[in-house]
Simulated assay, not measured.
Amino acid sequence: MKRIGFAVMAMLLGMAGASAQTIESVYTDFDATRCVMFAPGEADTGIPRQAVCPGYGGYPVLLQTMGDNHSLYFGFPPQGDLVSRWASFVDTGTPHDVIEWRVLSEGERQIPLATIQRWFVAAPERDAPVEVLLVQKVGLIEVWQGCIVGYVVATGNPGANETARKVADTLAREPECRAIEPVIEEGTVPLPEHMLYGY
């Protein structure tokens, strides 16, 4: 484990039991060929290509592409802010074709709080990519704030899936993205160098 404060740890431990009773995982497919481009981007000026993809229950997945790198945003972004938000890796990262949504049941309403998606990140010093679970807060209709809340390295970390769910169920409840410092959890393999701005 790396760079996680005592207050965040207490929150994770204290809320894990309650969250498990009301939050379930729902899985959707991610296929970039089904995305619809709405901005072609400008590689020369560093503006990524932008597309909207099918998500969960009407919540979109927004895909940005720059060369071989990708950035994904889940839900509804603050108006006009999508192009200024980028979360990816320095070396090429490829997202898995399945997205895990952590969905809160509140009466008849289903609220997707967070997503967990496995990324395969190129590592020049290794024979195989490093697998990282990217945990993101979903931009809800009434809040319009989505952001990275955690990086959980799955390679060399047998408890990565459960850890990612605990991070998702806790930090995705925070109303303000700017107040969230992404949690970094590592096993025996360090987190690959990543890029994060606009959050």
Rank of each mutant, 00 (worst) to 15 (best):
E142Q: 04
E142D: 03
E142K: 03
V143E: 13
V143G: 07
V143P: 00
V143S: 05
V143M: 12
V143T: 07
W144P: 03
W144S: 15
W144K: 14
Q145N: 12
Q145S: 11
Q145D: 09
Q145E: 12
G146M: 02
G146N: 06
C147I: 10
C147V: 13
C147Y: 11
I148W: 05
I148Q: 12
V149L: 15
V149A: 09
V149P: 04
G150C: 07
G150F: 11
G150N: 04
G150T: 05
G150A: 06
G150R: 05
Y151W: 09
Y151D: 02
Y151V: 01
Y151A: 04
Y151G: 05
Y151M: 06
V152S: 12
V153N: 13
V153F: 04
V153Q: 06
V153K: 12
A154W: 10
A154Q: 00
A154Y: 04
T155P: 01
T155K: 08
T155H: 04
T155I: 01
T155W: 10
G156M: 09
G156F: 08
N157G: 08
N157Y: 06
N157S: 08
N157H: 06
P158Y: 12
P158V: 07
A160W: 05
A160L: 04
N161H: 02
E162T: 03
E162C: 00
E162W: 07
T163P: 00
T163A: 08
T163E: 05
T163I: 02
T163M: 13
A164K: 01
A164S: 05
R165F: 09
R165D: 01
R165P: 00
K166E: 10
K166T: 00
K166S: 08
V167E: 09
V167Q: 11
V167K: 05
V167G: 03
A168L: 07
A168N: 04
A168T: 03
A168K: 08
A168V: 06
D169V: 08
D169E: 12
D169C: 03
D169S: 08
D169K: 02
T170M: 05
T170I: 07
T170Y: 14
T170Q: 04
L171P: 02
L171I: 12
L171D: 11
A172S: 15
A172Y: 12
A172K: 10
A172C: 10
A172G: 09
A172V: 11
A172L: 14
R173S: 13
R173Y: 05
E174M: 15
P175G: 13
P175S: 15
P175N: 13
P175W: 10
E176Q: 15
E176K: 15
E176H: 15
E176C: 13
